[in-house]
Nucleic acid binder design. Sequence first.
DNA 1: ACTTATAAATAAGAAAAACTTAATTATAAG
DNA 2: CTTATAATTAAGTTTTTCTTATTTATAAGT
Lengths: 324, 324
Amino acid sequence: MTRLPSLKALQAFRHAAEMKSFKLAAEQLYVSQAAISQQIKTLEQQLGVTLFHRLTRDIELTREGQQLLPYISKAFHSLEQGIDRLNDDPAPQRLTLSTLPSFASRWLVPRLGNFQSQEENLSIHISPGITLDSFDDSTLDLAIRFGKGDYPGLSSRLLMRDYILPVCHPSLINHNRPAAEQLKELPLLTDDAPDMKDLWPLFETALGLPGTPKTHRLQVTDSNILVEALLSGQGVAAARFSLIYELIERGQLTCPLPIYLPSSFDYYLVAPEHHFKRPKVQRFEHWLRQQTDDIRRRWEIFSPQLKPIHCVTEHYGEQQQSDQ
Amino acid sequence: MTRLPSLKALQAFRHAAEMKSFKLAAEQLYVSQAAISQQIKTLEQQLGVTLFHRLTRDIELTREGQQLLPYISKAFHSLEQGIDRLNDDPAPQRLTLSTLPSFASRWLVPRLGNFQSQEENLSIHISPGITLDSFDDSTLDLAIRFGKGDYPGLSSRLLMRDYILPVCHPSLINHNRPAAEQLKELPLLTDDAPDMKDLWPLFETALGLPGTPKTHRLQVTDSNILVEALLSGQGVAAARFSLIYELIERGQLTCPLPIYLPSSFDYYLVAPEHHFKRPKVQRFEHWLRQQTDDIRRRWEIFSPQLKPIHCVTEHYGEQQQSDQ
DNA sequence: ACTTATAAATAAGAAAAACTTAATTATAAG
DNA sequence: CTTATAATTAAGTTTTTCTTATTTATAAGT
């Protein structure tokens, strides 16, 4: 039942018929004219029909060719239309984003006004959530996710790298004593997200401090709440630079130890590949990268004072590739 | 601009979508399931879209897949319809034949009653002509042509071989004298068709007769007229067995010399390949071959008395591949 | 809970299709 | 009569597609 000829042969026929020339058809399709000649020859053999009269220096459709052409054209139109529609944006005036709640409220929303002011006609919708929303219901344009960049079935682009710092409220640190010692006495606030769990001990061993388990600890599930706890001076924690750099700059938080950990998870833009072709998404991505460039500059200013702990992140590499 | 995927990939998609299974699609298309899997994978890459959700033991279309499917189906319908139409018979109740006038009147028409009686609903039209009619105007179903079987752009099938005999009216021959001598005195009737020209000298040299050019001769352009002239005793001629065998059997003509020449031209059925698939054409061909079997049997009875002249027909081979 | 069975994915190599260049053919135009 | 053009043909190369064998994931059966 494989009675259908190949698309290439049909395309050759279509172009040759429209141009009334194998040569021009070949140019349009970026192949040699011999290729067209051969395709049409085999097409004619397969169909058992002569499609063209070969006159000396031009060709013309036979009756059968004329009869066939409209069906072929129609078929190609339908194919092309279907494929074009796939990439069409169902709602070009509306940009729907999925992000982590912490990133949304602490970083994205405060800046979004700037983007909205230059995109008068675009309404922006944010869908905050821990898990990655499905792109199947067609409403979601783009996700900003925190992970390793492996999102099966989706296309991802690195938005920015992140770094993890030990932080606490400035009032908890007495500058006359070594900070490391004081930290031992403070309650530890932990984030149980997979990428943030059990990071504190790495700081301690890096400093050669005995790994005495902390007695006081407060465990949260959302980085946002963790930051609020830090701001109110409830203890120390490992926190992401991206979420707290402004607080440090403003003196609302401090980084008591001159060390940091490169994050094993980074920020990615995630969507089906074709969503990245939507003009509104491209404009948003462009704006977003301007904003993250700003973070990167701040980090470049801030980081020289710190020493990286190159923790071999193998125990992250092995764990389930979970994502927030 | 080669943005279209291959037909195979689209066909794989179509069947997989309809069957909700790569395995079943593979069976329908007579390929392995791995082939379908790969085709769809590359299709998804090309389109930048996920077409199927892979659940464990079945698959389902994504939103994009659902959106694409109707366009693809429509395109395939159009293709299939166009190709089917090509082979459709525009007038199944009417059989139009093109043949040589001589063959039509002397052989075909007298027998056609037999065919027509078993084909009540088929009207038969004969278009007699020296040259091969064009198949472009869609009215012609089949041609019965006399030639070498090379009809560029058309399909041809050998219908029957033919043989050339020296013949004249019986009354012209006196059985008490050697026939060869008597023939020298009779007028020669010639057919100036390319395949019949200059055949008489071959008979003469075959018999070892001096090639004294005949003084009396009558030249005709149609074999039919030649036969009429022979019947009325106007002379001798080289004539086709197919056209005169019944006259010999009835004693209306005689073959005075026990020799014959295999014809360099034979009878062929000629048409665009797909015309041979039309039911009415197939029925006609079947009937026609029954009829020509009869001629062949008669020849097998008649020919043992004769000696073939294996004239090296090179001067036919080299001449223009003309056709009657 | 453990085995079995199913459907899809993947890898590697074989087979088929399509393309390229170069040479040939046929004929209109100069 | 020569030249130039467009198509065809031939031969060899590249690309695509397919097959077999293996792997993965999971639902179903024991």
